[in-house]
Design a protein around this nucleic acid. Structure first.
Lengths: 353, 353
DNA sequence: CTGAAAGCGCTTACAG
DNA sequence: CTGAAAGCGCTTACAG
């Protein structure tokens, strides 16, 4: 900056004003400054600017379970949204225990991030922090969150299967303590007809008893007349699919399988897995938008730092693929789905444990 | 800082020296300063320090294909290694095209990162940059890289299958332009006995002709006597496994399947997939260690900014699981693997295209 | 429309 | 062992 000022014989203040377009500088001087900056390959010091303005231009992203295969989608969407707004993204890993999440947040604050996007660990409640925060979580966590509408996604799954003539459902989740999984399973249940049959398998609970990697007993389910297998994640859908195939059951001829999240392998396996996709870009845009609005608003003592002031549900979309098919035995009237076991169109509000 | 100085009636310089342990300050004064800092909840301004010292305490991480399921492993390892050394990690996404990679690097430099770890896009060569750089890539890229020893990993796969009595191999890769995949396939080939039979399927080349998601024709391979299917990634191993299962071929009874990377689903599918795991923590430690050494060394005009001065190969490890089994028809002498088609123990050096 | 001055919060020679 | 002073590179009132 001073090199430009010196080269042009003007003051640093003028260069600053010209480059930022703030103070009133004559158009021709602005042009000369620009040209000189360009010529010199001038890059402003973000550090100096940060020190002076008190804004770092960086936001933090706290992720749990970084090994979660959904992570890339959301990290990429957040990074893009932030970059578009001129912000950098500092990552922090809260895997391990909840204490590490607190530590990760602490470290970001020490690095003077302007705001934080948090995907909280299962069962965590994020306290009011010293900087603006946006939380991405299930809508069942009361208020202040953005997320896919997992409940509605579950409904999509059930409706799709019901339309195909299925009446006997096995729903597969990992952990009933997860609001996300609960919503997905709950949404499915809400759209299963009254004359339908529903069985829910919670994998982690199962494994607590039978050991990790135990078979889910899906063959027996098929023998008992179940035809539709809907999982709260593509990971479990894949597990179901391979277990069925291994047992010699043909998918989708004898059983339909649906997953969630459109994870990378879903389209690649044979048969490819029908799934439900969340709009990570829309979610990231809402989270970053709200965060930046809070950051750029003049901070006032009474204002909350929680950026997302309401519960935002972003609709999910069904991606039909090969693992779902019309039930061979379905009669024409079977697709009458006018009566549901539970017609509520939204999940009950729950607190994080 | 000045609040501490004022509260204690000493100078800011002394507070700084006491807290950093640099200047010679009397032990008792150091203690008083520490106590006061603690009491006041003092957090030093990293921004001011960065401006003064010219070091931001942040490194950049550039990732291609952020949707690559291997990404979480490496991102987590890098983040942990950096955090342990007191550095933050700014992420940048180079997905899309190569121009975006250059842009991502540029933006990190503008944010004054002290160094950059790059996992380059396929076929990219990283030019000398204005800050220290460590590249994580296949060892086949000449020099200056850290990575898993993909060639040796491939050898592990072939040796495992040969030990189980297999002689007829189908090797499955996605793209022969990828050094990583080429090394893996090459390593496998180098350990296949002279009397063995090898067929290589490059998926992307296949799909160029037959369309995305086309079957790999594995059933026919089995009918032609192939018993071992080794893929350059768990994604392709999964594709192979499900295609075989769907065709009614029993794994591992009739065909063995091996993948690479121990991706999240490998242990969950049925049967679970035998794979080869890279030591992401060791790789990250080498990359970050070399980077920080370069950063903290006094910069000299003649020194290169390329942090990793030699080709580092981190050994991979076989994770045996259910998809591989002894060939039923194998006779006892079959496990004599003293003669190989190609006994070289390291890959040919290649240039990035 | 332009410039001189102060200051963001640190660290680092240097002097005492 | 301790402190006064300068300066990192910006931005922002304020004065002209």
């Amino acid at each position: 900056m001073s090199v430009i000022a010196d080269a042009l014989g003007v003051s640093a203040a003028t260069v600053s004003n010209a480059l930022s377009g703030k103070g009133r500088v004559s158009p021709e001087l602005i042009e000369r400054v620009r040209a000189k900056a360009e010529e010199l390959g001038y890059v402003p010091s973000v550090t100096a600017r940060a020190l002076r303005t008190g804004r770092s231009g960086v936001i933090g992203l706290v992720l749990p379970n970084i090994s979660n295969p959904l992570f890339p989608q959301i990290a990429q969407a957040i990074e893009n949204a932030a970059a578009d707004a001129g912000y950098g993204v500092l990552i922090a890993d809260s895997s391990g225990d909840n204490a590490k999440q607190t530590l990760a947040i602490q470290r970001l604050i020490e690095r003077q991030v302007d705001g934080i996007v948090i995907v909280p660990r299962l069962g965590t409640r994020i306290a009011e922090l010293a900087c603006p925060v946006a939380v991405i979580d299930s809508p069942s966590t009361p208020n202040n969150t953005v997320s896919a509408d997992h409940w509605q996604g579950g409904q999509l799954v059930a409706e799709h299967l019901v339309d195909l003539g299925h009446r006997d459902f096995v729903l597969i989740g990992a952990n009933p303590l997860s609001n996300v999984q609960n919503d997905r399973i709950g949404g499915m249940k809400s759209r299963i007809p009254k004359d339908g049959r529903v069985d829910v398998i919670w994998i982690e609970r199962n494994e607590m008893v039978l050991g990790a990697g135990c078979p889910l007993g899906l063959k027996e389910k098929v023998e008992n007349g179940f035809t539709a297998f809907a999982a709260s994640s593509d990971l479990h859908a894949l597990r179901a699919l391979t277990e069925l195939q291994r047992a010699g059951i043909r998918v989708p001829n004898e059983a339909s399988v649906v997953g969630f999240d459109d994870l990378v392998w879903s389209s690649v396996v044979s048969p490819s897995i029908t799934t439900v996709r969340q709009d990570a870009v829309a979610i990231a845009d809402i989270a970053i938008g709200a965060l930046l609005a809070t950051i750029e608003r003049e901070p006032s003592p009474e204002a909350s730092n929680i950026a997302v002031a309401q519960c935002n549900r972003v609709p999910m979309a069904l991606v039909p693929r090969q693992t779902t098919a019309r039930l061979a035995t379905a009669d024409a009237s079977a697709s009458d789905n006018s009566s549901f076991a539970n017609s509520s169109s939204s999940p009950p509000e729950r607190n994080a444990p």
